[in-house]
Amino acid sequence: MAGARGGSRNDPAPDGTGALFREAGLAGLLVFGLAAALVGVRVQDGAASAIAPLAFRFDDAFTAAAAAALGRLGVALLRAGLAAPVLAGGTAVAFAVALAQVFFPAHPLLLALLFDTAMPNWLVALFAGFLALAAGWRLRHAPLAIVSETAAREAAMDRIGAEVQRWARYAGPLIFLLALALPLMPFADRRLVDVAILVVTYIMLGWGLNVVVGLAGLLDLGYVAFYAIGAYAYALLAKYVGLSFWLCLPFAGIMAAFAGLLLGFPVLRLRGDYLAIVTLGFGEMIRIILLNWYQFTGGPNGVSGVPRPSFFGLPFTESPPEGGHSFHTFVGLFWPLSISPTAKFS
């Protein structure tokens, strides 16, 4: 199978339905081989293992194999130009699985036929729906002009990329304004704001990584160590020296930069895999040191009680300290209590 369908998808589609079904059958067999041991048998642990060491769910392994065979059949049919049956079958499977999952999630027959957990069932329905959509697209736009599937896909991706960049010019400022307004929205609660802050943190990490890997072309697998160094620099400086956030902010950056210097001098002679492994090792070293030097860093417990940032001595807290002001009382930021986001934060 590996050799027969070798390197290219440009080969003319295998002729005859026999080849299609053989391909689907092979995919099903492969997935059954993959799933038979690991999905079909579960090693029990804890109290359950005393009763029976193994739990069996071969029905799920069969389901996986059947889903893979059907999906492969759909893809192969689509490639052979038979879009109509794929459209019908994909729609039917997607709706059947989705309806069964919504209305009878615990029916014994469906438990036997489908997966026992909801997520893979939804994935099956999603993929069937996607196949049906692709088939419908094929039916409307006759695939005459497609010389090579790979070239067509790359052209389409290029088009989408150009479109995204065009839109980004207008969407960027809009998203920025939205981000600024997010904490003030009536639906914003603590969890949403936390997730949004995490997103911004990761964006910042991505920028930094882009400097090293993207612009400089150095494959740095230990980049995240600098994230740890910055965080620990702030936490430990605040804990042991008592510096405030605004003093620690440049210090944390400087310390991470020095760590980068320390790493950079020896490793910039290296190329390719060698550079990757040394940076990976550096990342691991930082992690191990932070975890094991528990007298200083708190080890796996971490550093707690790091003081929060303040604004010229005004804390960003909901309730102002006794006889003083907090930032929002000082500046006069107040909302009616009913829509106040801080009411939901507490």
Partner: peptide
């Protein structure tokens, strides 16, 4: 605790003098 650190340090040392 620091055995991995030692291994990686030796790795870095070796690669400084023999980059391949």
């Amino acid at each position: 605790e620091y055995k991995d650190v030692a291994a990686f340090t030796v790795l870095v040392m070796v690669l400084i003098f023999r980059p391949t």
